[in-house]
Design a protein around this nucleic acid. Sequence first.
RNA 1: GCGCCCAUAGCUCAGUUGGAUAGAGCAUCGGCCUUCUAAGCCGAGGGGCAGAGGUUCGAAUCCUCUUGGGCGCGCCA
Length: 677
Amino acid sequence: MSLPWSERSPTPPASPFDRVRTLLARATERAVETGLLPAPVAAADIALDRPREAGHGDLSTNLAFSLAKSARSSPRAVGQHLATLLAEVDVEGAIAKVEVAGPGFLNLSLAPAAWHDGLQAIAHAGASFGRSRAAAPQRILLEFVSANPTGPLHVGHGRGAVLGDALAAILRAAGHEVSTEYYINNVGNQIYKFGQSVWHWLRDPQRRAAALAAWAQGDPVAFPQGFPQEFPEDGYRGAYIAQIAQDLAGDPAFASSAPCADWDDDAAWAAAEPENPTGRADNRRLSLRAWQAMVVRIAADLGRLGVRFDHWQSERALHGLDGGPDRVRDCAERLRHAGWAYQGEAVQDEDGDREAGRALFFRGTREDIPKACRDGKDRVIVRSDGRPTYFAADIAYHDDKLARGFTHLVNVLGADHHGYVPRLKGVLHALGDLRRQEGDPNAAAWSGDRLEVPLVQMVALLRDGTPVPMGKRSGEFVTLADIMDEVTTAGNPQSGADAVRFTFLCRKADAQLDFDLEVARRASLDNPVYYVQYGHARMCSILSRAAALGQPFDRHAAQTGTHLAALGTDAERDLALQCSEYPELIVRAARSREPHQIAYYLRDLCAAFHGWYTHGKQTGRVIGDDPVRTQARLALVSATAQVVRNGLLLLGISAPERMAALDDDDAPEAPSAGAPA
RNA sequence: GCGCCCAUAGCUCAGUUGGAUAGAGCAUCGGCCUUCUAAGCCGAGGGGCAGAGGUUCGAAUCCUCUUGGGCGCGCCA
């Protein structure tokens, strides 16, 4: 009886996917020697699938198809050739059978030891199973959410947050270096309006108190009676505005500087606030305190979702408002000097003449900009009155991102901003040219293709099938926090985040999504997250049951593969291979920037487990009289649990080890929180 | 008008360098618990991928056009 080949090998056991890829790559090297192929194929470039059909082997590849042209032969002939060479290079006998099927597929059946090794590899790697080293590691700056700090996050921001956060984890697991960032738009018109809105509530304590009382006991989005007529037309109208005013009014440190009587009287504000000598509205103490309060709340809402950022980038800092150089103006000036920006022509609009030729336009339509980065029209970066636009600040921001040495900039953006992408890419191209003109040796690092923008489609919030009007200024909206409250199960604070995260991760980003509050309310029953979590809890329960029955799972034996020869049914092999596929999924999800692939994989893996388990109920369960078979099956359960757990934690979802049984009409009991890896 | 995204089963959605007989959940119907979780499993019915052309050994996937839906085209952010 021969030893499992893993015991012959001094190196840690390899994934069957890696091993087969290596063998196929070696076969193509042989094919070069025999004159069949002009060049070999790298292992990483070989597609390996787990075929759906039982008769198609354990793994299959379409390698022969992709090589047929360069071999000047038919796929089937190339397949035959590769099959022969594969048998030659497979000296250890990892592949039991090779079939050339159909028009040229190579269907491979694995020797048991080959897929047993996959289970060993999981036992070895444990919590780190799935992580890999990237062939070409990227330094990625991942920016997401970046919602204006003028209101609470809503459901759409939640989607972006979950996707961005999961994407960061996936990219890291795939071996890339990732820094996550939230860009705080704390300068400009919106901050002006926001501060103005708070100012109105601040000045009228009686009305404020009445409104807050009404909100506290009634409809949280209703607009109270008797709202002051003079409230800014396009001001922000949520209850939270009054609440911020209330908080500021109760803060002695703030109250010492009473707000001026007229919001638009810059001179009065300048006199009252020496640190803001121009009196500009978005730089007043009130505005600062207001957006800071909002950022605190945003961070708290994100925290409830389990989303944290490595860095919060302030737009103010780019403008030099907190000291330091004004990098926004600097970029605009340099673009102008380099011929990438020009003083605009006189424009006429409905309001009448603007000051002729004063605005500075970015030349985003230049023919030498690659088409994918070229804009449809030139955009203003500095207004006629000298104030820079949002775009100007973003230019400085993205210049800074690349200056920090990142090789890839990934901005997760709401789909309603897709029109913004070309001008941003165009700017990166222009900055590259600008730096070449300036003699910067690193100029090549600035180009439009450094930026990727995965778009997150809109979320339509519904209540019982009818759309809920959303808009910060209308004051009528359901916040992300509201949704979390509705979806969270009593006694389990984590359940809301789990349910919301999985809901978003179950859909690819580039598809619109209806989020119905009535459905969300019972999401705890419908949400597939519970299917996966239940699977994990069930696996854990089997392992603890084995210990209770006196046959505790032997992890060391699993790592050395001692008992694995006792595994051999089709279902066991399929489940083991499916577990071994996990690292493949991470690489694929990272490459395509698509976290939803992991969610679907986990659901499928749990389905395979449930099927295997339930079938085994009739023919002898996991724990049996034969200690070897028992240990072998426990190793399979343990490996599956490890993968499910790693996957859930990767997506920021808890992996409970126990879930209470569910009574008929009850909401789910609280799953116990999963211990960290 | 121009541009981007989407269209797959009754509903919600997967289907990823074009690959073998297009899948899952929900819903419907029929089965499965004295045993390590029935929040589970097994089976049935149900679509030929919005429509029409094209590319090729092969198309839900690529190209063109049409239809339908979403979004964008500010000296807003």
